[in-house]
């Protein structure tokens, strides 16, 4: 696992992105290997989700290239981008199920829009996908009737409906109970091996990610701080890395937001 360039499905080079002059990503290089689970980790608000959107072509980068399977995403025209997206799945944080469609219709949606399969074939495919996430019995429910974990599983079934080559998970574990986290972890691994997918997980849940990821990129302050296999990162000498992995409240990443000296500020006159 040494990031052989020919093995990577996604190649990110010199990627920068700003929002209202604020630097979100600065000169980021990433390689996502084919057929593996790659995690992108980092503290909240460091542009991890933004990175997924850049890869998906939903945001234009300021500079840099994002190559997926040989295609440079920012340079693609809309029809070509849509063609590429048919081969990518994305699992959103909230699931993003269509609230006016049943579970069945949600999973059937990509099939109905992008294929002209006969109805009985669509039915079989949808049931297979739902079976894979263990929710075949819930197909008549509306999204509002599902728990958060179930909604994510349905969304996962929808994301794999068109048998994509890669799938991106945006914070798949956040806000879930331990059992659901376990289910989702198992599903991510299972799908990756059985379908031969390439998976990208954006998350800040250290334990879960370390358990399933083959390779981890850690992003903070808009840069790649470190990357390597979970075991390699665990042995990292960097104080910041240790703080992040162990969840220490203070360290190289300070507890306090940058401010002027506390005592001086308290003594200052009110009419500053």
């Amino acid at each position: 696992m040494n990031g052989n360039a020919d093995d990577s499905l996604v190649k990110v080079r010199g990627l920068s992105f700003r929002r209202n002059e604020r630097v979100i990503l600065e000169n980021v290089d990433l390689d996502i290997p084919r057929g593996k689970i790659t995690a992108i980790m980092g503290p909240s608000g460091t542009g991890k989700t933004t990175l997924l959107r850049l890869i998906g072509g939903q945001l234009p980068p300021l500079q840099g290239s994002i190559e997926i399977d040989g295609l440079n995403v920012p340079a693609l025209k809309l029809p070509a981008l849509y063609e590429l997206r048919k081969r990518m799945g994305m699992l959103f944080q909230t699931g993003a199920l269509f609230s006016d469609l049943t579970v069945f219709e949600n999973v059937a949606f990509p099939l109905r829009v992008h294929t002209r399969l006969p109805e009985n074939l669509i039915r079989d495919l949808v049931l297979m996908k739902l079976q894979a996430v263990g929710l075949r019995g819930a197909r008549r429910l509306m999204p509002a009737e599902l728990s958060g974990g179930m909604a994510r599983r349905v969304a996962l079934a929808r994301a794999i409906a068109l048998d994509p080559m890669m799938i991106m998970y945006d914070e798949p574990f956040t806000g879930q109970d331990p059992i659901t986290v376990g289910i989702i972890m198992k599903l991510i691994q299972q799908l990756n091996t059985t379908l031969g997918l390439t998976s990208i997980i954006v998350s800040h849940d250290v334990l879960e990610v370390s358990a399933i990821a083959d390779y981890i990129y850690v992003i903070a302050d808009g840069r790649v701080m470190e990357h390597g296999t979970p075991t390699a990162l665990g042995r990292s000498q960097s104080a910041w890395m240790q703080q992040f992995l162990q969840g220490l409240p203070d360290g190289p990443a300070p507890f306090h937001y940058p401010a002027s000296d506390y005592a001086t500020e308290l003594l200052e006159a009110d009419d500053a």
Partner: peptide
Amino acid sequence: SAMEMMAV
């Protein structure tokens, strides 16, 4: 957003 990512 999900729709966009599903190429719709």
